[in-house]
Computed example of a mutant assay.
Amino acid sequence: MNTVLSFHQGRLPLLISMPHAGLALTDVVRDGLVPPARSLPDTDWHIPRLYDFARELGASVVAAEYSRFVIDLNRPDDDKPLYAGATTGLYPATLFEGEPLFMDGQVPTADERATYLERIWRPYHDTIRRELARMRKEFGYALLWDAHSIRSVIPHLFDGKLPDFNLGTFNGASCDPELAERLKGVCAGFPGYSHVLNGRFKGGHITRHYGDPAQHIHAVQLELAQSTYMQEVEPFAYREDLAQPTQEVLRGLLEALLGWARERYGR
């Protein structure tokens, strides 16, 4: 199995996680996918490129190399459902549109999936855990931004068109409510985009598991509508004309996150 993640350590107490940006497949998964899945349509496309300013900002960045079709890094290792209604699990069985992901008889075995858990899922979460612990030890607090994107219209998962910026704080449990309001204010300052807090996407396993305001770890998930920066159908092309103004909002959100923390903690 090749490299399972990329990691850059920054100088500020902010970690950006990109669990669904990976494109790599194991041979077993690649050979078993149904034809519509082979283009990896449910990928959080181009997220590392969209956040390419984050390193300059001083953030640490961890990004998955393997596709969520192998194993979903934003699900708990016991595979308990995170959302009521249609969703995907630790080992996805369907595409976002509800169709089967694998051809008949081609689903990875339990032993294969156990290997994915140990060699892909655990290293990613070990990296998050270590980096948050380092930041908290050095600065007294840590900030976690879980960066996602999704097609703006997926009838099987949600009604209508998704807002552009979908902030999730697990209904206020993963970060200080004042921080969440600060982030909403940033979004409101860009009226060309729609936004919501704790709508359809309230934060997945990463946000829920690591966010712990009482221990000074504040976690936020952003589910970004892909219509804000790319072509949502194949070939899933990055669109610089859309991405540049969207990056202004993203930078504003991350700067607000850091600014709030400096005010709160004094460093």
Rank of each mutant, 00 (worst) to 15 (best):
R30C: 02
L40K: 08
T43A: 13
F69I: 05
Y66K: 11
V61N: 04
S67T: 10
A59L: 09
P48R: 10
A24W: 07
Y66R: 12
D52Q: 12
S67I: 10
A54Y: 04
L33W: 02
N74R: 12
G32M: 04
D42H: 03
I71F: 04
L33D: 03
Y83D: 11
R30H: 13
F53K: 13
D44Q: 13
Y66E: 09
V70A: 07
V34I: 09
V34E: 12
A59Q: 10
S39E: 12
D77M: 10
D52C: 07
R68Q: 11
P41N: 05
D52Y: 05
F53V: 04
T26N: 03
V61E: 12
S60P: 01
P81I: 08
A64D: 01
P41W: 08
D77R: 12
R49N: 04
Y66I: 15
V62L: 13
R49P: 00
G32W: 04
D44N: 12
L82H: 01
L50A: 06
D31W: 02
D44G: 11
P36C: 04
A86H: 14
R30G: 03
A86W: 06
A54V: 11
V34F: 15
R68V: 02
P41Q: 08
H46F: 06
R38N: 05
V70T: 12
K80V: 14
G22H: 08
A86K: 15
L40N: 13
P41I: 02
V61T: 10
P35L: 05
G85T: 02
D78P: 00
D42R: 05
A63R: 13
A64K: 11
D31E: 15
Y66C: 08
P81A: 14
L57A: 05
D52K: 02
R38C: 07
R75G: 00
L82R: 10
D77W: 03
V70L: 05
D44P: 01
D27N: 09
D77N: 08
A54R: 07
R68T: 07
P35W: 00
S39L: 08
V61Y: 07
Y83R: 14
D31H: 08
K80R: 14
L57W: 03
L50G: 03
S67K: 07
D27F: 03
F53S: 11
G58T: 14
R55A: 15
G22Y: 01
G22V: 11
G85V: 03
G32I: 07
H46E: 02
D79V: 01
